[in-house]
């Protein structure tokens, strides 16, 4: 977004050079920046009117307010009296001005209550459903997981992975964990021989098996039963984005690492 000047190299956004063609980029992109501020003395409506005139857009202020769930009486008040959540909604509305081809949301959920967080998710989905791209940057991995089609992981300034969450799982082999509760662990447990099983751990009456391939899960259950145990309970956990993140960045993620997602 041209906030930071490069020391070397080139970058393009939507096919435009990030240094030479900033105007073209800024006309097509909407951004909710991290660490932004608004004008305390201006009303919410004035903010949107200003953004619309600067972007030469023709949006209707009331439509934008509706989309972010900010009511009209609040929009007449000055922003100095807004709560963090209201400011975030207004900033989100500013980002939506001109129906941008690319919507960049940098830590969009900070300061929002659960309803606000859900709203951000809905706006991101809604925008993607209109055929636009949403670039979603967050440290809150559960959100990334629930919103993003493709995920990129940055580690110390390097993009270490870009793929769908399933793709990342497959690539790393951090598949899923099958946990079985049995009446008694059979002496002759032969699970390690099954294709796709990477790790077996037994603790009292629970057997924990890590599998890299989806089909191996059923094989594991069948094998336990044919080894002579009765299965009382089965839980299957897919590895979370958090596990994937740790796997890609080393076990102790450093400060400043952020997964970034795209829809």
């Amino acid at each position: 977004m041209d906030y930071v000047r490069p020391t070397a190299g080139t970058a393009t956004v939507l096919g435009f050079d990030a240094q030479q063609e900033t105007r073209a980029i800024h006309e097509r992109v909407g951004i909710l920046p991290d660490g932004y501020g608004l004008y305390d003395r201006l009303s919410g409506r004035k903010h949107l009117e200003y953004a619309i005139s600067l972007k030469r857009a023709s949006d209707d202020v009331d439509d934008l307010l509706d989309r972010v769930g900010l009511d009209k009486t609040a929009a007449e008040r000055v922003v100095g009296g807004y709560s963090k959540g209201m400011m975030q909604r207004l900033a989100l509305a500013i980002a939506l001005v001109g129906d941008p081809e690319l919507l960049i949301l940098d830590e969009p959920s900070s300061g929002l209550d659960p309803n606000g967080v859900r709203l951000v998710r809905e706006i991101a989905r809604d925008h993607a459903d209109r055929g636009k791209t949403v670039f979603f940057s967050s440290h809150i991995l559960s959100q990334v997981e629930s919103v993003c089609d493709r995920v990129g992981i940055l580690n110390r300034g390097q993009l270490v992975a870009v793929d769908s969450i399933d793709g990342l799982r497959d690539a790393l082999g951090t598949g899923s964990t099958v946990t079985l509760t049995v009446d008694a662990v059979p002496d002759s447990l032969t699970l390690a021989e099954i294709n796709g099983v990477s790790e077996v751990a037994v603790d009292d009456r629970t057997i924990r098996v890590r599998v890299d391939e989806a089909t191996a899960k059923v094989d594991v259950i069948d094998q336990v039963r044919s080894d002579g145990a009765a299965v009382l309970d089965v839980t299957i956990e897919e590895s979370s984005l958090e596990d994937l993140f740790s796997a890609y960045t080393g076990d102790a993620p450093r400060q400043g690492d952020a997964p970034e997602g795209e829809r």
Binding site: D2, H26, G30, P33, Y36
Partner: peptide, 17 residues
Amino acid sequence: GERESGSLKVILGLPPS
């Protein structure tokens, strides 16, 4: 003032150079 408050990021995220 705008740089400190962060509103500069909003304005420069819009078309103005």
